[in-house]
Every structure is written in C-alpha cells, then in structure tokens.
Write a protein that binds this DNA or RNA. Sequence first.
DNA 1: AATTATTTTTAGATTTGCCTAAAAATATAT
DNA 2: ATATATTTTTAGGCAAATCTAAAAATAATT
Lengths: 218, 218
Amino acid sequence: MELSVAEENYIKAIYSLSQSGKVSTNDLAQAMQTKASSATDMLKRLGEKALVNYVKYQGVSLSDAGNRVALKTIRKHRLWEVFLVNKLQFGWDEVHEIAEELEHVRSAKLTEKLAEFLGDPRFDPHGDPIPNSAGELPKHSVKTLGECKTGEQLILQRVNDGNPEFLQYLERIALHLGEKLKIKSQYTFDNSVEIERQDGSVLMLSETVTNNLYVIEQ
Amino acid sequence: MELSVAEENYIKAIYSLSQSGKVSTNDLAQAMQTKASSATDMLKRLGEKALVNYVKYQGVSLSDAGNRVALKTIRKHRLWEVFLVNKLQFGWDEVHEIAEELEHVRSAKLTEKLAEFLGDPRFDPHGDPIPNSAGELPKHSVKTLGECKTGEQLILQRVNDGNPEFLQYLERIALHLGEKLKIKSQYTFDNSVEIERQDGSVLMLSETVTNNLYVIEQ
DNA sequence: AATTATTTTTAGATTTGCCTAAAAATATAT
DNA sequence: ATATATTTTTAGGCAAATCTAAAAATAATT
C-alpha cells in the first residue's frame, strides 16, 4: 500500500503516544500540531485502510499493519540520522528535521543498502534503538537519571532528542553517550542532582535535564 | 519561497524541454505524464510566483528565479545519484527513481555537506554535469556517437539516462564512461555503426544506441 | 479566405489534508 | 442526578493537484 507523508506521520505519532496506553484524538492532534477535527478525519481514513483500530469516541491504537509501518518509518528516520551525523558530520542537534523528510523516501532497497553502508547500527546518535529489517527493536533503557538513587553508578545510554536546545546544552557540557556517571547527591527541594564524571569532575543537573537522560546500571 | 514537489518537477521539465526553444503546454503535459489542462493550471500558478514567463497560448519559459530552482534541483538529483552508485553500490540503472524523491529534500546544508562527502563531483554516474553551488554547469558533450564520422577517435563521456533498459544493455556489453572508441564503419541503410574498442574487439551499435551516447574527441 | 484540425484554456468535479463553527458524546463537579 | 465543562465528531469550506468535457484560440489545409 502506498501511504502519504501525512499518513506515515500520523502513524508515527500514534506509535509514540501509545507507549502509554490508548491514544486520544486530542493528544494526537496536539502531537501533530493540528486540530482535533483534522485528526478525526485522518483516523477515519487510517481506520478504513486497517492501519489503526479506531472506534468513535473510544480513542485509537495501531493495528499490526500500522505497527509495521511505524517501525519501518522509525527505522528509516534513525538510519538517516546516523548517516547525517557519522558520514556528513552534522551535529546531533541538527538532524531531526532533515531525517523527518528523508524517512519518507519509499525504496526499501535504499533502506537496506543504507543500513549496510552504515554497518547495521543498532542505535541512532541520540541512543534511540533502530528497529532491524524485521521490525525488532534492540533493548534500550527506559530508566531516567532522575529516577536513580544516590550512589548508583550508571552509564548514559540515551537522551531525549525532542529539543535541539537540550542537545546543544549536553554538547556544551560535553556529556556524551556511553559516559560513566555516579550520583553524588540529590536535592529534594528542586530534584536537582550532583553527578561525578569519569574524570572526577562534578556536575549539577536540573530535574528537567535528569528526566531526559536515560541510563543503564554500570 | 517554499515550493511543492509538483512545482519543482514542472520546473525541471520546463528546464529540460526549453533546451530546444520555448515550451508548449502539450509538450510539458506529455513530459509530466499528465493532461494539458493540468499543465495550464500549474503554469498559471508558477506564473503568479514569477518562476516562469507564461502568456496564454504563447508557451512558457523559465524566469531567472525559475532557472535557479531548476539548477538547484538538478544539482541535488545528480549528487544523490553519485551517492547511490558510489557509496551504496546501486547500479546506474536503478538510481533515477530514488533520486527523484531525494532531490526534493529541502535542506541546503544537506546538499552542500553531501557534495563535500562525495568529493564535489562534477559529473553524475551517467556523465551528466552537476551544477555547482552557484548554479554553473561544467562543460559537457552534446555530440552523439551517431553524428560522428568513420575513422574518428572518441571518448564516451555521457549516456542518456532516461531508460533503465538501455543502461542495462550498456552494462551487458560493458561499455563504460571514459572508454576510448574508434568508428570502423557506418551503414547508411539503418545507420548502425561498427566501433573498435580499446582491447581491439569490435562492436555493432544500432542507431538508437548511437543517438544516446555522447562523446568527445580523443 | 474559409474550413478543418489541433492546441490550449476554461468550467466543473474529485481527493487529500487542513480549517472553523456547531452539534453530540463523554467526563467532571456541584 | 443534574448542570457544567471538556472532548470528539460532524458539517461545510478552502487550496493543491489532478481529471473530463466543452469552449476558445491558433495553426494547417484546401
């Protein structure tokens, strides 16, 4: 089936929102920066194409076919991000927008040749997992630094890539994926956290920051 | 100005058709595989945007702005073809369709970084010249093998990339860009040509073939 | 020059994806 | 439980890009 760019984008949004249960029309409209009535229109169409399970007033979820579309699109998006950063030397804060366009290029052969060219990467430049050609996602952290306890020794595995300014901030303080961290102290009045880095230096991170850094145990 | 994919494609078609004078609505419609009425609609819109000089019933030509759009799009198309062939190991007969999609990705920074990554190539895999970032085209051959005389010593510089089967045929007989050729004989009854190759072997080419091979003098 | 043929444009529909405004359904609060 | 607020859907429109069929303009022919 030949999907439009708009259809693919809605499916991606539903995929991402449905990590936390069924998706409401309003939430979807907000994620798509559009009006609820537009979302309703699209849900009807996606329902007719059997890409979503949609019942009026009951919210929506992806069908198996819809899920495959979502994962295929996410795979392409993240592979292109790897290309842009690793091969074209873009900064990790610059690639999201461009990948949003590249992900809609249709050729499946292109996707697979690109993956091979990049060495079949399993994670994108922000640490987000790249589905393989069968649509399987590598395991990845869902635990934020904000959820951890004082004394824990951690590795930064993934960062939220939703905000370029946040990524620029991380670049500024040279906080990179794979870095080992230890929580020195936590301040309950504002949930800020003091961490010790590999080189022994110490860093103070706000709650907003720690909620957008995903870690694994060292 | 933010142009749609359709607008960019019409502009490319007008550019390519206007190599041989002013472009008629019918020719444009045929090139775009659409109806004359659709072409008329688009010409009005492009006229309003000052990308073409369009007067009812008088045909159309590109304005300076339209010309810049055409060259920019051609630059992107041909750079992506180089990427697909040189980096992803696609065959030269497989890349046109994919590049038709990639050429519409908007980021100018992407184009320039891609060009740099590829070593600022001046010609695409079919020998077509790639406009530089200022929109200047490298010199390229406009003389077909079919126009040459017996005894001439030539170099194959460019091939018509319009037909994948033609490209596959050239691959089959291993006729590659840069190869030195000598015309041994020409047959006037069907305009076929016998050429001698570098390795001394001899090849018989039909008129259709020689009209789609562009050469320079050796 | 008048007729015929061809090309081009206009008029009116269709589809996709969006909008606003109003109506209907569901959720919340008193 | 009734009233109020919120969410969701419907109804009706708009713009882009296409189509068919008919009208208008231009070109070709006798």
